[in-house]
Design a protein around this nucleic acid. Sequence first.
DNA 1: GTCAATGCAAACCCTTTGCAAAATT
DNA 2: AATTTTGCAAAGGGTTTGCATTGAC
Lengths: 141, 141
Amino acid sequence: MNKCDVDYKQILNSAHLHATDERLFVVELLHRALKPQTSKEIFKKCKNLKIHETTLYRMLASFKESGLVKQIDFGGKLPYFELADMEHDHHHIVCTHCKKVSDFTGCDIDKVVKKALAQSKEFKTITNHSFELFGLCKKCA
Amino acid sequence: MNKCDVDYKQILNSAHLHATDERLFVVELLHRALKPQTSKEIFKKCKNLKIHETTLYRMLASFKESGLVKQIDFGGKLPYFELADMEHDHHHIVCTHCKKVSDFTGCDIDKVVKKALAQSKEFKTITNHSFELFGLCKKCA
DNA sequence: GTCAATGCAAACCCTTTGCAAAATT
DNA sequence: AATTTTGCAAAGGGTTTGCATTGAC
């Protein structure tokens, strides 16, 4: 049982989720991936563990609900998943050609929220936001 | 033939799209909707015209390709569609409870792009971006 | 022992594809 | 007349549901 196991077992348990082998595998996979993954990508990487696709979908749903994982839409058919990063509110730059993904921080969300709430008198609080950039990486440009 | 018909007929033609009754109906529907619509919402509102669902999907695809319509993801299962607004780069605030939508402008995209490109040395150009806020409207708060 | 999570089969829903008929340019 | 666009039927692909079995707590 390595350090990672321990960490995520505790995190799962404190979210009232049983720390099964399947869940620990998926969480660590996401941890190591370094970029958002589709359910299909995760599924392929789980082949050795023989995790059933249904189980994966249910897993991702409960991870999302517990706030452990975030779902991101890049405009394609499939949603992407990544571990929620408690420290940094980061966003993504996606190459529309080769699908490369980089992170960036500093979207100045507080300022934008203030501006938006001043414009729309109908809203009271903002709890969440999505912000993704699309363009071309240096190789594809 | 009202004023709207003429406008959109020309717009469709200049995008090399035939201005069929079905297309004009959908374009005007989106024009009047004032907020993004799912394909299912549009489909229901087309019942009287008996537009086939397949036709609607193909229509939305060609509208998107020609830049007449933008697709937006609010994190749910279905994507939303709205007329592309050439003048204003506007974004949305969505109530997570009642699904109400308001617009806002001024996401300071130029500044964020500059910041993001400075952070990610791997990207050269940004061509597009998504930015949506989620929260509670005054009624639901 | 209790309750949650998994596996499996089947269903579900949204979307796409192929081809012939109809409509627009 | 040439080419798009539509309608229909069928298939495709991702995701969800119900239920019995397995496993974590």
